[in-house]
Design a binder for these strands. Structure first.
Lengths: 334, 334
DNA sequence: ATTAGCAATCAAACAAAAAGAGTGCTAAAA
DNA sequence: TTTTAGCACTCTTTTTGTTTGATTGCTAAT
């Protein structure tokens, strides 16, 4: 357990380092924070904080920077999560209260807003659709070569898509399609759609590939669309001093380019909470130089997807978490 | 007019510089290309090419690099546009011949393929929809709270979208909507949809905002989707030596982030041709350090959109243009 | 018209020195 | 026992100077 002075020192060092990106010296600490001790005393505390692994030095005679363990302690024990200004509250409220047609857009707007307020890169993704169960499939014939498919899931997600045929279809056939698909897919997860084509044709030999294939392809398409990653403010990262190292910058661009990697991280976090992954805490090798903060959000009771921030380990966790908490609450109340 | 030897020297310098990214010396030229002259002779030619503005030096005793004027001459007069290997032809063919559901996807696949073959960043965008004329609007009621809208344009583009209402709608109302919208919008460009809401309500006071607004919003949405920019291989850029300068790298990321900027460039080029913009030839200030090569492609006779490559001025124009020509032809024949 | 040869130029690489910031430790003060 | 003043020591950063090597432009010879 840390004594109060150590806590104050650790907190001050994290915050100072987050601000300046420079190793923090004992002298600068007593100047900027008003700690009523001499630099020698602070130095002793710093030495002990280093011994137990909360601080690091970049070289023998440098100031201290927080270790990952230090950031973790800060996030868990010291951080203030109401670090948000009136202007920011106002800006966020305005942004979120603009009318949108599709609530899916809200996730993007929220992600955008977070990026604008925090100046970090945000990523977002819709709710996990593939595991949702199909509650019902409806097919409506528009004209002989055009059919509408409506998919309703147990999570009350409704998706529709037009399917075009190369041959004429009649009402009777639509009925059969309706029966056949519901038979096969009702109460199955959406990903069942990915099964090979033959399976769908098994029962009903009368149905040609020309009819079944466009239906399946089009449904797949619509589902896939939902899980697309949305990226905002990638260029912000390049204003941060850590990205002056070309090595790091390149790495960052590469990570963002590997969509599956980022998707996995977003999907993995716990719901109902803000998840913070600091450096090595990230499972994926490629992310070990970065920190990621994510949360799954709802509108009312409906799962809406996940929003994440990816940035340097020297991230302003306090600001990020405060903004996320506020946005999370706002969204829930909409 | 350049004599033959000057042409050979200029061509060799461009190609050598494209390869190595290092200023080209008179000595290296006679080694790599087999020019049957002494380095002194080449030096004299280089000096003259510099005098008339085709070459530049980075400092008084350095080798030469092509100026923008030099690149332009190379592209217009010296470049071979069949610089494409059997493997590349094969790879491209395979990629383009995979079955796709929506021909819109073909643009993305083509852009992707270009990026893979050339190792440059590609951007692509669908055909310009906003100026297309509305040929017909169809509305079909699915159920009391759901209507399907189908938009057909003079370019034979067909778009459909589901519209959800907050109050029940009957067939009679759909008929009125049908009449009203066709009246207002037939033979108008798609962008007419952007008019303020009041205009649509003017004729028919009986129609509430609750009915009209979702229709217009949803149609806007569908149209906007088409003009979305698709980006591929942005990380490739970071393997190029010019992007070792953080200044340039930052600038590049910034450009890609300003979607409208890139969109404008893509939209502006001539159809039926490959457009090359070298450095300062770009209208936009932000693009003056880069070169951009674009082409509008068709599938059969249907306009499909524009694909562009953005990279350093030291771009392998020969490879890029060869690949683009080949892909353009392939697409047209599909 | 071409080329050999050479002085001049300049970036890049290397080395040495100086300056500055910060720590750790010891001994004194509180 | 806790805190602090003071100073030697360490290491980075900046500065300055030197050397090396590549390349050019020019002159005079071929």
């Amino acid at each position: 357990m840390l004594n109060d002075r150590k806590k104050r020192v650790l907190q001050a060092i994290v915050e100072e380092y987050v601000n300046t990106a420079e190793p923090v010296s004992s002298k600068s600490l007593i100047e900027k924070e008003n700690l009523q001790y001499s630099s020698a005393t602070i130095r002793n505390e710093m030495a002990e904080l280093e011994k137990i692994g909360y601080l690091e030095k970049t070289h023998t005679s440098s100031g201290r920077i927080p270790s990952e363990k230090g950031y973790r302690y800060y996030v868990d024990e010291l951080l203030k999560d109401d670090n948000i200004s009136i202007e920011e509250v106002k800006y966020i409220s305005e942004k979120l209260e603009t009318k949108v047609n599709e609530i899916e857009d809200l996730t993007k707007i929220a992600a955008s807003t977070i990026s604008e307020v925090t100046h970090y890169t945000t990523v977002s993704i819709g709710p996990k659709t593939k595991t949702q169960l199909i509650k019902e499939l409806k097919f409506v014939l528009i004209n002989p070569r055009m059919m509408l498919a409506i998919i309703i899931t147990n999570a009350e997600m409704i998706k529709e898509t037009i399917i075009k045929f190369e041959e004429d279809i009649n009402e009777k056939q639509v009925e059969t399609i309706n029966y056949m698909f519901n038979q096969k897919l009702k109460n199955q997860p959406l990903e069942t759609i990915d099964r090979p084509l033959e399976e769908y044709l098994y029962d009903e030999m009368s149905y040609s590939v020309k009819v079944i294939k466009p239906i399946i392809d089009q449904i797949k398409r619509v589902i896939a669309q939902d899980e697309q990653l949305y990226l905002k403010g990638a260029n912000n990262a390049f204003d941060l001093p850590e990205f002056n190292s070309l090595e790091v910058a390149k790495n960052f661009i590469n990570v963002l380019d590997q969509k599956e990697l980022v998707e996995d991280v977003l999907q993995s976090g716990l719901a109902e909470d803000i998840n913070v992954y600091i450096g090595e805490e990230n499972q994926k090798e490629e992310l070990k130089d970065f920190s990621i903060v994510t949360f799954k959000h709802k509108v009312g009771n409906k799962d809406m997807g996940t929003i994440g921030i990816i940035g340097p380990k020297r991230m302003d966790y306090s600001k990020v978490i405060s903004v996320m908490k506020y946005i999370n609450k706002k969204l829930k109340d909409l």
